[in-house]
């Protein structure tokens, strides 16, 4: 489960990332208190070790990027 602080990560960026990752993982997004929560289950077992972290980086990239 990946926790994203609402004051540091935008909901928009997380939703965009969830959309992009749908091909390679089953994702569920929720909110709890000051956090957005994303449950990530990779579709391929060989991705288990790093997909959650890659997802975090991707969201950070979207958060930072100009749109």
């Amino acid at each position: 489960m990946k926790k994203f602080s609402k004051s540091l990560y935008s909901q928009e960026a997380i939703k965009e990332a969830v959309k992009r990752y749908k091909k390679i993982a089953d994702l569920q997004m929720a909110e709890k208190n000051k956090y957005y929560l994303v449950k990530i289950k990779p579709k391929k077992s060989e991705h288990n070790n790093f997909l959650e972290d890659e997802f975090g980086n991707y969201v950070l990239g979207l958060r930072k990027g100009a749109r």
């Binding site: 602080s5 540091l8 975090g56 980086n57 950070l60």
Partner: peptide, 12 residues
């Protein structure tokens, strides 16, 4: 982000 995984938490 190209070479490490970065995660932020806390209160800005």
């Amino acid at each position: 982000i190209d070479r490490v995984y970065v995660h932020l938490d806390g209160d800005p």
